[in-house]
Simulated scan of single mutants.
Amino acid sequence: MKRILGTLVLLFVWHSTFAQVTHIVFTSDVHFGISRKEFRGKKKVPSETVNKAMIAQMNILPGLELPRDKGAGEGQAIDKISYVAITGDLCNRQQPPYPPAAVSWKQFTKAYLGKLTLHAPLLLVPGNHDASDATGYYKPMKPATDNSSMVGIYNLEMKPAVRTAATFNYKKDKIHYTRDIGKVHCIFISIWPDSEERGWMEKDLRHVAAGTPVLIFAHDPPDGDASHFINPFPPHTINKKDQYQNLLSDTLHTPPTNTYEQEQFARFLQAHPNIRAYFHGHENWNQYYTYSGPSKNVALPVFRVDSPMKGKESASDEQQLSFQLISIDQATLQLTVRQLFWNAKPKKDGGRMEWGDVKTISLR
């Protein structure tokens, strides 16, 4: 009996140790509809094939031992993956010869809802390509608009609300939501924290305790992309001459820079010091950095992630392909982001994984 009780105690301690670390896989810009120039010895490999290869590597994460790097859960085997977060550009812009969003979205769901075996919910936000497919672009697209990926993301994340291609309204049907992941409040927003998204976050944060750490997931980096704002020049349309995309709620104040808009975001961050980190894609490579704002008056830890299709470094060197593993120790509120090269030895063993850069911050 004593031996049985001792075993049960050990099992309880083992489970408690592992259960306190929450793991989130993070990637971005998966761009269904286009092809990589080269992948695992083949030319012009479609995104569907590349993403399925990455998904296969994600599927084997449970049981993988974390490196001893003084980060959250160091030296432990990964118990389970709780979520998979993807910050936009799920579908590529439908500029010929790339297919319509409807086709690319079906490929995305077939891969991520059909091949991912982690039993981990997807946490999705749209990117500028998803949004431009729905609203139009200053270069020819075929069809001119197709809101399939926006509708698909909305229906996956905004439950119980449901939209169809006919009822979805880009300006009104904002894709933004929250998830409380253990003791951490995670906010997922469309494209970038413009005035509408900040207003929505302001209302949300009124119900969040000041001591609760908050993470923001968005497509654009915290310094934004000036071309995503509303065209500041009359008649404020999407056109080839001005090349603004009209994806955000704000008209660009001081073209061609978005310094004014960044200052507004920096003020928001100052008002909410419990916002502890920001995760994004758009310009894709693995980078851990600090956003200080135009006036150098904030210090927000930022995590930029690679793309399987359009990585700044990995597009030309497939061994640099990586995603991130976000690990949160719920007891100590230590957050560690680890880079995982998921295609490190493509010719030898079909893509052995290797650990890359690591960054740990306190969420307290």
Rank of each mutant, 00 (worst) to 15 (best):
Ile181Lys: 00
Thr135Ser: 15
Met309Val: 03
Val9Arg: 05
Thr259Cys: 11
Pro46Gln: 01
Glu263Asn: 14
Arg304Lys: 15
Ala85Val: 11
Lys203His: 12
Val337Gly: 05
Phe12Glu: 00
Ala77Gly: 02
Glu196Met: 03
Gly211Phe: 14
Ile24Gly: 09
Ser190Ala: 10
Ile326Trp: 00
Gln243Trp: 10
Ser149Trp: 08
Thr254Ala: 12
Pro213Thr: 08
Thr259His: 09
Glu261Cys: 08
Ala19His: 00
Phe39Asn: 02
Phe233Glu: 02
Arg206Met: 06
Lys296Leu: 13
Lys110Leu: 15
Ile189Pro: 10
Tyr112Leu: 10
Arg267Phe: 02
Ala134Leu: 08
Gln95Thr: 14
Phe188Tyr: 09
Leu11Asp: 04
Val151Arg: 05
Glu313Trp: 13
Gln76Cys: 00
Ser82His: 06
Arg206Tyr: 10
Lys115Trp: 14
Glu202Asn: 07
Thr237Tyr: 13
Ser295Arg: 11
Pro256Leu: 02
Thr109Val: 06
Arg3Ser: 06
Ser307Pro: 08
Phe229Arg: 02
Ile4Tyr: 11
Leu113Thr: 14
Lys43His: 09
Asn343Thr: 09
Val302Trp: 08
Ala85Leu: 10
Tyr154Pro: 02
Gln57Asp: 07
Ile78Met: 00
Val50Asn: 15
Gln243Cys: 12
Trp192Ala: 05
Met158Asp: 02
His129Thr: 07
Ser148Asp: 04
Val298Lys: 00
Gly182Ser: 04
Arg179Gly: 04
Pro143Met: 10
Lys52Arg: 12
Leu340Lys: 03
Glu261Gly: 12
Ala299His: 15
Gly351Lys: 11
Glu313Leu: 14
Lys70Pro: 03
Gly88Thr: 09
Thr145Gln: 14
Arg276Asp: 03
Met150Trp: 11
Asn147Phe: 15
Tyr154Asn: 02
Arg276Trp: 01
Ser47Trp: 07
Thr178Pro: 03
Ala331Met: 01
Leu11Cys: 05
Arg352Gly: 02
Lys310Glu: 08
Val50Pro: 13
Thr257Arg: 10
Thr109Arg: 06
Leu90Asn: 07
Asp69Met: 15
Ala85Trp: 03
His228Thr: 03
Ala331Lys: 00
Glu48His: 06
Glu157Lys: 14
Val13His: 12
Arg3Leu: 12
Ile189Thr: 15
Thr336His: 12
Pro97Gly: 13
Arg163Ala: 07
Glu74His: 05
Gly350Gln: 03
Tyr112Asn: 02
Ser190Phe: 03
Met54Cys: 14
Lys172Ser: 15
Ile175Lys: 06
Asp329Phe: 00
Thr332Leu: 10
Phe26Leu: 08
Val302Tyr: 05
Val30Thr: 11
Ile230Phe: 09
Gln95Pro: 14
Tyr112Phe: 09
Ile326Ser: 01
Ser227His: 13
Asp225Gln: 06
Ile187Arg: 03
Val30Met: 12
Met1Val: 08
Ala344Tyr: 15
Phe265Tyr: 04
Thr7Phe: 14
Asn92Arg: 10
Ile238Glu: 03
Ala299Thr: 06
Met353Gly: 01
Asp89Tyr: 14
His176Phe: 11
